[in-house]
Amino acid sequence: YIGSKISLISKAEIRYEGILYTIDTENSTVALAKVRSFGTEDRPTDRPIPPRDEVFEYIIFRGSDIKDLTVCE
């Protein structure tokens, strides 16, 4: 799965898409590269977040912050 395009939804209901870079089982983290944030879209939340235009080089997510993770390709 390393190198695959991943769609990830955080506990804050924010969806991110990026390339799976590393999975650290010891620290329970997932790192994505070339990440875009799509905001909360239409998911119900107390704090709606708009999508962002910039592409983040890397984002490291803690396993406890991840609600859903899907391989896109």
Rank of each mutant, 00 (worst) to 15 (best):
T40K: 10
R43K: 05
L69D: 03
D24T: 05
D53V: 10
E54G: 11
D68T: 11
T22V: 09
L32M: 12
T29E: 14
C72E: 08
P50L: 11
D53N: 08
K11S: 10
T29Y: 10
A33E: 14
T25I: 05
A33P: 00
D65E: 12
L69W: 15
T40E: 00
P44G: 14
R43G: 09
F38G: 03
T29H: 13
P44D: 11
P48F: 10
P50Q: 09
K11F: 11
E17Q: 07
G63M: 12
R43E: 02
R62M: 04
P50D: 05
K34E: 13
E26H: 10
L32T: 03
R52A: 09
K34S: 10
T29K: 14
V55F: 08
L8S: 02
E57Q: 07
I9Y: 01
E41R: 01
G3N: 04
Y16R: 00
S37C: 08
Y58E: 14
R62W: 04
D53Q: 08
C72A: 13
I9Q: 02
K11I: 12
Y21F: 07
S37K: 05
I59W: 05
Y16G: 00
S10Q: 03
D24F: 01
Y16L: 02
Y21D: 15
D53A: 09
P44M: 15
F38I: 00
D68G: 14
P50V: 02
S37E: 12
I49S: 13
T45G: 07
R15N: 00
F38S: 02
A33I: 15
T22D: 13
F61H: 01
A31R: 15
A33F: 06
P51M: 04
I60S: 14
V71I: 13
F56L: 14
A12C: 13
I14R: 11
G18M: 02
E41W: 03
I6P: 00
Y1C: 12
R62T: 09
L69I: 07
P50T: 08
D42T: 07
T40P: 03
D68K: 14
A12D: 15
S10V: 05
L69V: 09
V35M: 01
S64H: 05
L8C: 00
T25V: 09
G63N: 15
S64Q: 12
P48D: 10
C72H: 11
D46E: 07
D68R: 13
I49F: 07
T22L: 09
D42Y: 04
R52C: 13
V30P: 02
G3D: 01
G3E: 01
I23E: 11
I59G: 05
I6L: 05
I19Q: 04
R36S: 05
D65C: 05
I6N: 02
Y21S: 15
T22F: 11
Y21I: 15
E54Q: 08
S4V: 05
P48R: 11
I66C: 01
E17F: 05
E57I: 00
R47G: 09
K34T: 11
L32R: 01
E41M: 02
P44E: 12
E26R: 12
I14F: 03
V55S: 07
S10A: 02
E26P: 09
V71H: 12
P48S: 12
V35P: 00
I9C: 01
Y21T: 14
Y16S: 00
P44H: 02
R15S: 00
E57K: 12
T29R: 13
E73K: 04
P44T: 09
V30G: 02
L32G: 01
D24H: 05
A33L: 07
I23G: 07
F61R: 00
T40V: 00
S64L: 10
L69A: 07
I66F: 05
D24V: 01
I19G: 01
G39D: 03
S28H: 12
T29Q: 14
G39M: 04
V71M: 13
D68C: 12
P48Y: 15
D42P: 14
V55T: 11
T40Y: 00
S64C: 13
G18H: 03
E13S: 08
E73C: 10
E57V: 00
T25N: 15
P50F: 10
I6W: 04
C72K: 12
K5S: 08
S37R: 07
D42V: 02
C72D: 07
T22M: 06
I6G: 05
G18F: 01
P48C: 12
K5Y: 08
D53I: 15
K34M: 13
K5L: 11
I14A: 08
S7I: 14
G3I: 13
K67Q: 08
L8F: 00
S4R: 15
V55K: 07
D42N: 07
S10L: 03
T29P: 01
T22R: 12
S10C: 10
I60Q: 13
I59P: 00
G18L: 05
I6K: 03
D46N: 14
P44I: 14
R62V: 06
I14M: 06
A12G: 08
D65V: 05
